[in-house]
Design a protein around this nucleic acid. Structure first.
Lengths: 266, 266
DNA sequence: CGAGGTGTTGAGATTTGTCAACCTACGTGG
DNA sequence: CCACGTAGGTTGACAAATCTCAACACCTCG
């Protein structure tokens, strides 16, 4: 157990309480420069320079704070410098559906793009910092730098692809598959950011995960325990280590013969 | 009861036969004119005229035919003139996840936009016709007609919002909620097209529905039967009538607040 | 130290999945 | 025109997974 805690995740550690109000107190956490922003990923040469010449404001968001709420007038996109967020779609009677988790380098707010309003609510899961990118600025810039329009489209379709991935997770009927898929997804995203894919901190509660995956928080907890008992992972509160990636993948790949589509039986 | 069928579509639909000689079973099915296309929905005045001046080719797609496959090079968007489609994300071992159903007036192919390839496969659920809109043409036009760029963004975010809606459906843990939500969604979409929202034909199989909703086809069937027994709907094969919209909505609204996922505010 | 949010675990109730039989509609070919 | 084959749909019985309710443990913060 000590081993887990000794592995210091670079992102996502719970911070000490929010002491002084409205302080731009920078945390010892990787802060993404403009160069690392999702939108600039595919920009080259002078397009990149032009983009980086724009000074975007950044904002510190305290754990639990809402960056925007569903129904708010759409105005800005947000790129995460550090920290993590969840987005959720509010339903009637306080029911809500968590639609995604976002981490450093991710872009969110895209769903408000076409309409005049955001569809989802974005909440910080820990003290975080975001770049604020006014949409008006982005569009103006996109007209000037066509490759930025491409980047924007690219981000949109990436977000679409992401949501398709979630649908696949939710479409599987077993809780184990959903949880395994969820963990592997988180792992890959950490890896892509140059962080450890095998040991990281879960920024969200079991309830968030369960809501996201369409299962109860108890089932999430039990599944974690089962995976741990099977030697696939090690969990202690928010600290997670993936011990056997292939094992998790095997759970997803489990061939569940579909009736009518099976071969060999006559 | 019979009144349902007497509600005629109010929108400017043109009924016309497909002229192709090979058409053995021509159906008197609404064919959407360019004016009804998703992309032109928010265009006005000369922008609309400009858009309509472009002659897009259309293509007849037979039931079961693939318009494009996941992994195909992205090149065109498709707007449905008549008929319906499903899109699905292929998984390993032939497993697939149905990601959406599309009907007349809908736009699909958007998911390939940013990347160079389509993420999903689009299959006709019945003999259908689509407008083929080369992306190159669309982008060129969008530069000329800025409001078209807005329309495009709008469609993208609508698609995103749609997928969030699906996530909400899949996030609910009960099969009844999922099916009720699915039916209400279909109903609304028919209404929005000037068709009857209370009586329509399901273009997809129970297996498709189940895959989409993350439940088995047997559960779909049983749930339909249960709803019918409760007097909420009437089903016979693909023919569906919604007898009690509020009843279905009540199933969704069931005051059983999903636990967890509460935002940090109060 | 206590409070409250969070996480774990147990036991029983329910729902859903699985397997299997059967029914129904529809297209094909005799 | 009808018989037949087949894909799609329904239903039943049972097993298995998940939900629900409830008790308790853990951690952080005040």
């Amino acid at each position: 157990m000590a081993t887990i805690l000794s592995i210091r995740p670079q992102v996502g550690l719970r911070l000490q309480k929010a002491a002084t109000p409205a302080e731009s107190r920078d945390v010892a956490r990787p802060i993404y420069a403009p160069r690392e922003m999702a939108l600039s990923a595919s920009l080259r040469g002078e397009d990149l320079e032009r983009f980086e010449s724009v000074k975007f404001a950044s904002r510190v968001v305290r754990q639990g704070d809402h960056v925007f709420n569903a129904g708010d007038k759409f105005s800005c996109l947000y790129s995460i410098r550090g920290g993590c967020f969840k987005t959720s779609l509010p339903g009637s009677q306080g029911r809500e559906q968590v639609t995604g988790f976002f981490m450093s380098g991710d872009l969110f707010g895209l769903d408000g793009l076409g309409g005049a309003r955001y569809n989802v609510t974005a909440v910080a899961l820990e003290d975080s910092t975001v770049w604020i990118m006014p949409y008006a600025v982005i569009t103006a810039l996109a007209r000037e730098v066509p490759s930025l329009q491409c980047s924007l489209d690219s981000e949109l379709s990436r977000e679409l692809a992401r949501s398709y991935g979630v649908m696949t997770l939710l479409g599987s009927t077993s809780a184990q598959e959903r949880v395994a898929g969820f963990l592997l997804n988180l792992s890959r995203r950490h890896l892509r950011r140059g962080l450890s894919g095998s040991s990281f901190t879960l920024g969200m509660t079991r309830a968030d995960i369960g809501n996201y995956l369409g299962i109860t928080l108890e089932t999430v907890s039990r599944t974690f325990s089962a995976f741990q008992a099977a030697g696939l992972i090690k969990v202690q509160q928010r600290a997670l280590s993936i011990l056997d990636v292939e094992g998790l993948e095997r759970i997803l790949e489990t061939v569940r013969p579909k009736r009518g589509a099976r071969a060999g039986c006559s």
